[in-house]
Amino acid sequence: MLDKKSVEIRKKIVQAVKLSRRGHIASAFSIVEILRTLYEDILHVKPKNPSWENRDRFILSKGHGCLALYAVLANRGFFKESELETFCSFDSLLGGHPEYGKIPGVEASTGSLGHGLSIAVGFALAQKIKHGNSKTYVLISDGECNEGSTWEAVLSASKNKLDNLCVLIDCNKMQSYGFTKDISEIEPLRKKWESFNFDVKEVDGHNTGKLKKVIGKVFEKKKKPHAIICHTVKGKGISFMENNASWHHKSKISDEEIEKLYYSLSSRT
């Protein structure tokens, strides 16, 4: 069951695509609760000073889920909520993938899959060299586990015993073309990460209470990097979008569809 805030964030996402009429809405709905938990309860960040040296770092490696990140960052005060409505327009701060150096709070430009985890390994390693206490969180998708570079980064994180790194896996069992099991089977996912010497946990990725509990304790185990498999539903919150591959990336979204999205969300509250 989604709480009021989760529904509100989703409404902001729908509002954001009103002008652009396009976006990876279902991919964003999959990660709303993970991002809410991070920015509301976990990350030590200063929205008015986003480059604060001692902040925790978060990278959205599945950059196409940026609508959720934008809505959560705006909600946390990194930039004005009115920016959301300009999504993908010519002069907008907010494009179809997040950009570093442009959007306050965005730690790395992502969009091409299989990049964010390596950058996150660099962040975590930098903290080790500096003897810093900041933590690094990176959100990747289960589909992103198709990328060879993801596993290169996993080997390196493990070798360097990056116990200050937390990889959150948005495990919605879907990717652009359809179900991951039909495209490139990644199960057994937990065993894979464990065999790469990660400390692995699993959680319901839409339950903010459970997410807070699991992420909050993730760094207790030392000498190993951490992975949390967050079981999610692509398009979570909208019945006709859930597990529907045609909503992976939608363009030319009609007035009628926008209304349906609003109606569907409003009926949940």
Binding site: A108, L117, S118
Partner: peptide
């Protein structure tokens, strides 16, 4: 691929 991404992370 990883070595370049890791280096970018260090440089940031």
């Amino acid at each position: 691929q990883h070595v370049i991404g890791l280096s970018a992370g260090l440089a940031m």
